[in-house]
């Protein structure tokens, strides 16, 4: 079936939809120049394409079109209860992109959006303006890549650089850039900063099987190593932990690889660690289960206050196991568990 798919489907980004009012925009033109062979389709509003009924999100993920749009309304949101806030009181996130170039089978985006195509919002200035208004009121901890993968497309939009520059202008701003990439180029192009946190999600290879198109554990660790050596602030996220067969062995093998690749000394310089077992809102899970028969989403989760998660004793055991694996290398104060913040 894979080759049938490959033969039949259009190449990713072979089509780029552009909102009409953005056609003359400089940044839009720069992006279009990078895809000289793409077919450009002018549209009125991104929702005309993104929100069509009955779309086939799985096929769209395999043959993603790019949609360049302007986002209106609120642009920066307070974190939801299932977000790990790392003790930050003013915890916010923003969506510069809808959807992701990666295709993790457990990703709630599959259940959240009606389309698998990728929307990139071009009005960065509006995001920055809203952020600056917030900064006048209180410090802000902002996740800029919470529900997408900005680093993978940094060459295209430069948003990580743009927000990193904002941290230089505003002392009360900290940003978190969550990633599964091996973004060494990006790390090399930015100065290390205590207020730009690169949060690498690490998973055993047994889980990476379900994180389609993402780099291997080895490749992610190479980026982590380089980031630490360059003086970047690095967070290691074991979130979401996924219950795969033999998960205990899988996670301890992963930890062995981490220690081997980074060494104990570097692990001491990791800013902090985050641990969380998989959880998802009930509505998203329902939609996700319709889109895939993957065992990671068909697991018989339990519903706790509208969020599906592993049965409490299983989740507890998974998170305790991961904490136990980390403790020889990190003090308890550097390990954040999602469950403990709620």
């Amino acid at each position: 079936m894979l080759s049938l798919k490959k033969n039949l489907l259009a190449e990713p980004f072979s089509h780029i939809y552009v909102e009409r009012e953005l056609v003359g925009d400089r940044r839009t033109q720069e992006i279009l120049h990078r895809f000289a062979h793409a077919r450009v389709i002018e549209i009125g509003h991104y929702k005309d394409v993104f929100c069509r009924p009955r779309q086939h999100t799985a096929l769209q993920h395999a043959s993603q079109a790019l949609i360049l749009a302007r986002k209106t309304g609120s642009l920066i949101y307070p974190g939801s209860p299932v977000c790990q806030n790392f003790g930050n009181h003013h915890f916010y996130y923003t969506s510069l992109c809808m959807n992701c170039v990666f295709d993790c089978q457990y990703c709630y985006l599959r259940g959240m959006y009606p389309s698998g195509h990728l929307v990139l919002f071009m009005n960065l200035e509006d995001y920055i303006a809203e952020l600056e208004t917030l900064l006048l009121e209180h410090p802000v901890y902002l996740c800029i890549s919470y529900d997408t993968e900005l680093c993978a497309l940094e060459n295209l939009h430069g948003y990580v650089h743009a927000f990193a520059r904002e941290t230089e202008r505003h002392e009360n701003l900290t940003i978190e850039v969550r990633t599964k990439t091996s973004c060494t180029q990006l790390l090399r192009s930015l100065p290390g900063s205590s207020r730009v946190i690169f949060a690498f999600t690490l998973s055993p290879e047994e889980v990476i099987r379900y994180e389609k198109k993402t780099p291997s554990l080895q490749a992610r660790l190479e980026a982590v190593r380089e980031g630490l050596d360059l003086g970047h602030t690095i967070r290691l996220c074991f979130d979401p932990m996924i219950h795969v067969p033999e998960w205990r062995k899988a996670y301890s093998r992963m930890m062995e690889t981490i220690v081997k690749e980074l060494g104990e000394e570097r692990l001491r310089h990791v800013f902090d660690f985050s641990i969380g077992s998989f959880r998802i809102s009930q509505d998203y899970l329902r939609a996700l289960r319709k889109s895939t028969d993957s065992a990671v989403v068909q697991y018989p989760f339990v519903n706790v206050d509208g969020f599906y998660q592993y049965p409490p004793e299983t989740a507890e055991e998974m998170e305790n196991t991961m904490t136990g694996l980390l403790l020889p290398y990190a003090g308890r104060d550097r390990i954040f568990r999602w469950r403990e913040q709620i």
């Binding site: 039949l8 489907l9 072979s14 089509h15 005309d48 779309q55 086939h56 395999a62």
Partner: peptide, 20 residues
């Protein structure tokens, strides 16, 4: 056709172009 514009209503229908 990658877009079909209804000249009566102004509505545009975009067939998905995932199939090459």
């Amino acid at each position: 056709a990658r877009s079909i514009e209804d000249l009566g209503s102004g509505r545009v229908f975009y067939p998905d172009l995932v199939l090459d």
